[in-house]
Amino acid sequence: MTTTPTAVAAGGRDLPHPAREEIRLEDVLHALSDPLRLRIVRELAADGGALSCSHFDLPVTKSTTTHHFRVLRESGVIRQVYRGTTKRNALRREELDGLFPGLLDCLLAAAGRQAVRLGGS
């Protein structure tokens, strides 16, 4: 996947994100196929804003958490920007809804029903 540089974040640290026209359905579906990544996206969708990586209490190592966020970013599902030394994460809802109308809402609703059925959050 080709990524287009975004505006340089504070401190000169920039993270590559795919441009809207580069986001591919198969990459989005792959990113959301992992339960922890889907959990991250559900939390971001519920919040509606940008959350720091440390907000998420995931049962994996820091390096594995970093990997999950990278997969979500590189697929175009989230946007990550530095604010000082903190990475803030936001769902690219408007872009995803424009490219794949109804997909995100359908997946989030199904994930919520599954969580209830399996007794999770």
Rank of each mutant, 00 (worst) to 15 (best):
S54E: 08
T66E: 10
L38N: 01
I23R: 03
D34N: 10
R37V: 00
H55R: 14
V41C: 08
R24A: 15
L32V: 07
R24Y: 08
H55C: 03
R24F: 06
D27V: 05
D47W: 15
R70G: 07
R42C: 09
A50K: 11
P59G: 04
V28N: 02
P59Y: 05
P59W: 05
V28D: 00
L29F: 09
P18I: 02
V60P: 08
C53G: 04
H67Q: 13
T64V: 15
R37H: 03
H67V: 09
C53F: 00
T65Y: 01
L36T: 05
L51W: 04
S52F: 01
H68V: 03
L36S: 02
T66P: 00
D57H: 12
H55Q: 06
T64H: 14
G49V: 10
R24W: 05
F56Q: 03
T65P: 02
A19H: 14
R20Y: 08
H67C: 08
R42E: 11
L38H: 01
H30M: 12
V60Q: 07
E22C: 06
V71H: 01
A50I: 04
V71L: 12
S63M: 12
T66M: 10
V28W: 02
A19K: 13
A19S: 14
E21R: 12
R39W: 10
L25N: 10
G49T: 14
V71T: 13
K62F: 13
A46G: 09
P18Q: 00
R70C: 10
V41S: 05
E26I: 10
D57R: 14
D57T: 12
R20T: 11
K62A: 14
S52I: 00
E22T: 09
A50S: 15
S33C: 04
S54P: 02
L38G: 00
S33G: 12
D27A: 15
L36M: 05
R20I: 11
P18K: 03
E21S: 14
T61W: 03
E26Q: 14
K62T: 14
S52G: 15
H55T: 04
L32K: 05
R42K: 13
R37G: 00
H67S: 10
A45L: 04
A50P: 05
V60W: 05
T64P: 04
D47R: 11
A46I: 09
A19Q: 13
L36W: 07
A50V: 06
P59A: 09
S63I: 11
A45H: 15
R39G: 03
D34M: 00
G49H: 15
R70E: 14
T66F: 10
D57N: 11
H55F: 08
T61G: 11
G49E: 15
T61Y: 05
S52H: 08
L32H: 02
D57A: 15
L58R: 00
L44H: 08
A45G: 03
L29I: 15
I23V: 15
E26K: 13
T61E: 11
K62R: 15
G48Q: 09
R24K: 15
